[in-house]
Amino acid sequence: MGIIKFILITLLILYIIRVIIRLVFPLVLRNLFSKVQQQAEKQARQQNAKPEGSISIDYMPPKDKTGKSDNLGDFVDYEEVK
């Protein structure tokens, strides 16, 4: 008799947990997705906050150092051999 009572109580508790999860889980997911969507919209608004037609340069390559021709080396005459 004790084993049957234990099994019935266990099944009842599992059924109640299952019903609660079916009711609560979608609400938690909706809330989570809503927050993620709001953060994405906020980030998109921040990136598009620049006025139209403005130019922004994120990277400028370093300029090559131009030296005097004296420092570049010796010039060697070239003759083409046929």
Rank of each mutant, 00 (worst) to 15 (best):
V36Q: 15
S69G: 04
M60P: 00
K42D: 09
S54P: 00
I55P: 00
T66D: 04
M60Y: 00
N48Q: 14
V28T: 10
F25K: 09
F25L: 07
Q39W: 12
V28S: 09
R22A: 11
L72H: 02
K63D: 06
V28N: 07
K63I: 02
N31T: 09
L72D: 06
I55H: 05
R45Q: 12
F25D: 06
S34D: 13
S56D: 10
V36M: 15
N31C: 07
M60C: 01
S69T: 12
K42C: 05
E41N: 13
A40K: 10
Q38S: 06
L32A: 10
K42V: 03
S69H: 02
D64I: 00
R30W: 03
E52Q: 14
A44P: 01
A44N: 07
N71H: 09
K42I: 05
Q38T: 05
Q38I: 07
S69C: 04
I20C: 02
R45H: 06
F25R: 07
N48S: 14
K42T: 04
N31S: 13
L27R: 11
F25H: 05
Q43G: 08
E52R: 11
N48D: 12
A44W: 01
Q46A: 13
Q39K: 15
S56R: 12
F25E: 06
V24W: 01
K35Y: 14
I55G: 03
Q47Y: 05
T66N: 06
I57R: 00
T66H: 03
I55W: 03
Q37N: 12
L32Y: 13
L23I: 13
S69E: 11
S56W: 04
N71M: 13
G67S: 11
M60W: 00
N48Y: 06
K35L: 15
E52Y: 10
K63E: 08
K65N: 11
K42F: 08
N31D: 10
Y59D: 01
E52L: 14
Q43T: 10
V24F: 02
I21K: 08
Q37G: 09
A49D: 09
Q43I: 09
Q39G: 13
T66F: 02
N71R: 10
N31H: 13
R45W: 05
S54C: 05
G53I: 03
S34H: 13
E41P: 01
N71Q: 15
F25I: 05
P26T: 04
P51K: 13
L29D: 07
R22D: 08
P61T: 01
Q37E: 14
A40R: 09
P26S: 06
D64W: 00
K63V: 03
R30I: 04
Q43K: 13
K50P: 06
Q37F: 07
V24K: 02
L23W: 07
V24C: 02
N31Y: 13
D70C: 04
Q43R: 14
K63P: 01
A40M: 10
K63F: 02
Q43H: 08
K68T: 15
P62A: 05
Q37L: 13
P26F: 01
V28F: 10
K65I: 15
K63M: 03
K65C: 07
A49Y: 02
M60R: 01
L29V: 08
F33D: 15
